[in-house]
Computed example of a mutant assay.
Amino acid sequence: MSELNKQAIEVPGATVPFFTYTMGETQYFEFDTSKCGPPEPMVNAMAGLKMIDGPNKKVVMINHKKPMGLLDKIGENYDIETEKMDDGRVKLIFSYKSGESENANLNDAACHG
């Protein structure tokens, strides 16, 4: 697999760097909150998810553990793949879910868990 051509991008409201890259027809927005404490993973996930406006965009979140508070809040609004990484971190890939993603409340970044 060739090295992805990741570009740093500005994401309004984000507190960690975001990167974008394309694989096939899909644009990915990736960020890593594995060294952050609450509420940063939630805040950055909400900021990133605002960029998913169709099936050809996905958000990749790398975190130290599965963010249950986030998943409780928006889990039904996105298709989410979870992958355990070799170093113990967790990678979540959020995909657009037609008819549901539009209903996600991405302005409530308060962390309750």
Rank of each mutant, 00 (worst) to 15 (best):
E10W: 05
K84H: 13
G48M: 01
N44A: 13
E81P: 00
P38E: 11
I62L: 13
A104L: 04
D32K: 13
G113A: 06
P41V: 08
L70G: 03
V90F: 11
G113V: 04
M61F: 05
H64A: 14
R89D: 03
D79M: 14
A109W: 06
T20F: 03
C36Q: 15
Y96Q: 07
P41Y: 01
K6E: 15
E83F: 06
K50I: 02
N77W: 13
A14Q: 11
D53M: 11
Q7S: 09
G75F: 05
M61W: 01
M46Q: 03
K84E: 12
Q27E: 14
P38G: 08
M61T: 02
K91M: 13
A47T: 08
A14S: 15
K65T: 13
E100L: 03
G113Y: 05
D86C: 00
Q27D: 08
G48I: 04
G69P: 00
G37W: 06
M46A: 09
N105G: 02
I93K: 04
V90G: 03
F31K: 08
N44E: 10
V59Y: 00
T15Q: 15
V11Y: 01
G24Y: 06
K50T: 03
E3N: 11
G37Y: 13
G48H: 01
G88D: 04
C111W: 14
Y21L: 05
I93G: 01
T15N: 12
T82M: 09
C111V: 10
S101Y: 06
N105Q: 04
T22C: 11
L92Y: 03
A104Y: 08
G48K: 01
A47R: 08
D87I: 07
K50D: 01
F19C: 01
D86T: 05
K73F: 05
Q27Y: 00
L70W: 04
N77P: 10
N77K: 12
M68T: 07
L92R: 01
Q7E: 14
P39N: 09
N44M: 08
T33F: 08
